[in-house]
Nucleic acid binder design. Structure first.
Lengths: 211, 211
DNA sequence: GTCTATATCCCGATAGAC
DNA sequence: GTCTATCGGGATATAGAC
């Protein structure tokens, strides 16, 4: 029924504009703290349009979540890990995870916000629930190859490994402010960033290699 | 001027009641999402009292933060690490950190909330800024003893080590919902908890031992 | 110090014209 | 599909009696 006409590109463009601004607003202030007026005020659109396209504030928030989670998933696919040795593939996966979190603090903040809300929206979205992440399959493959090649000697569940990789990459960004204040560290410092990146990779690779 | 009379213990008791309920409310809904009415409604007090004791909603939130950060600091002191070997002391520190986060999800949630607010309140509080955590000193001592005893061969900054310990312990709790949903894992499961505890400790201890 | 009642503002959502 | 104007509820904060 709905007209999907290429003659009117403004519609989709407006939708995308709203989404982009909303992502910033929700990442910055959380779900309760975000203001629909503030979102409308930052673009050449009115508040009415937001309700026209997304129905409600929560509907908009959910659309933002889906967009953001889709982003990291798309990039994961491009890593081309099979051509690397198990150790190199693992390092590449860790480096990718580190860099992605570092470059996308809004993603990290939105995930934090969603966890404050007990993941209720993520669970509610069919799209997001079916994002049966390919990371786990990739990691499982790396682990299997590494074991066969005699390079890895530690038994570990792929999901557990994913957690061990994500945790420090996430924490560095999510807890930047409290950690930075309490221990007088600027976690944005490039020197520190490179040091942490190497440290995280060395720690995890070392764990898998050791018997 | 203010009467601090032992004849009226109700005052301090009321204050503590408000604090305890507020901690739950702020941890559950965040700063913007928390409702002053909801806090008053859960105790035998009125909303008026909250403003009487804490001045404002933010004042109450700040008091909660100070109380919560004080809690973990007090416990850190009781570990008695000097009597243990460097490796055992490190393991004890990791186990303590793991257990504390696991047993105090509200603490984790409040820290997440504060980071969404860019740590503005934590920075603003003299009390919290002066919480120059003793963890770093404890870890530095462990590292030094371990190096002298020839048990640790990796050079690492104590603050970095603290981050590597805290990150997985924190993440496991803070991201419980999104991670649990996306990967179909119940991160509250006791079996999983023990496995993760051992895995985290082994990973970090292994990293320090390796050259 | 503790209560009831209320001021005041702000925000999500909608009405209705074009 | 896009605008202006506004409703109606609910939230923080306060007034003022006892």
């Amino acid at each position: 029924m709905t007209e999907i006409s290429p003659r009117k590109p403004d519609a989709e463009k407006t939708r995308q504009n709203i989404l982009a601004v909303a992502r910033r607003e929700f990442a910055e202030h959380g779900l309760s703290g975000a203001r629909v007026d503030a979102i409308a005020g930052q673009i050449n659109t009115t508040k009415r349009m937001i309700y026209y396209y997304f129905g409600s504030k929560e509907g908009l928030y959910l659309a933002v979540l889906e967009q953001v989670y889709g982003g990291i998933r798309a990039l994961e696919q491009t890593l081309d890990l099979d051509r690397l040795s198990p150790v190199d593939a693992l390092r590449r996966m860790i480096d990718f995870t580190f860099d992605y979190h570092d470059a996308n603090p809004d993603f990290v903040r939105l995930v934090s916000v969603e966890n404050i809300h007990h993941g209720a929206h993520l669970r509610q979205s069919e799209t997001l629930r079916n994002l049966n992440s390919t990371v786990i399959a990739s990691l499982a493959k790396i682990l299997e190859r590494g074991r066969e090649a005699g390079q890895f000697h530690t038994e570990i569940d792929p999901v557990d490994l994913h957690m061990m990789i994500s945790a420090p990459c996430f924490y560095r960004v999510s807890n930047r402010y409290t950690f930075g204040t309490l221990f007088a560290r600027d976690l944005n410092d490039p020197v520190l960033r490179e040091r942490h990146k190497r440290m995280i990779a060395d720690t995890i690779v070392g764990y898998l290699k050791a018997g």
